[in-house]
Amino acid sequence: MTKDNNPKMYMNPYLGGALLGLVLVFAFWVSGRGLGASGAPKSLIVAGVEAVAPAHASTATFYKEYGSAKENPWKAWLVFQMMGVVVGGFISGAFAGRLKFEVEKSPKITNKIRIIFALIGGILFGFGSQLGRGCTSGSALTGMAVLSVGGFVTMAAIFGTAFGLAYFARKLWI
């Protein structure tokens, strides 16, 4: 099979980046806001706590400030957008023949180690995304596109820290 017609090949990254940029511009033109991700699980957690422990949700500061008094979390823009992300990712993976249950990791570690570190990474990223008011999509990428100082600061902190810690985490990846 020649290089150009292998169905599992990814798109050229500069073309892909340009398409992602156009999606971002379209989001601003339609909705006046950029892309995001971490806001969707936050909305679901707020909605979940309000449903399971309404008394707690009505007294704890975080839920009072971000709860349904301000916006119905089930109808949040980012929840719909993230449902789309799952559908869009699936469509691309289906066309490319990449649908497969697997654990992706360095050949040097076990699946169990990979899953444990993925969970720890997720916990850190979830916490950090709330502290930083958005993740790589909502704060860094979208913030940079509108030239927000905070977007550049968050981007530099995320990538700088990941580079700084890469040596210590190398067994996970190389």
Binding site: F125, L165, W173
Partner: peptide, 18 residues
């Protein structure tokens, strides 16, 4: 601070939320 914690999550977890 949020960015530093997210950076650590990125290199350990291999993904960002999106």
């Amino acid at each position: 601070g949020g960015g530093v914690i997210m950076g650590a999550g990125f290199i350990l977890g291999g993904y960002c939320p999106g």
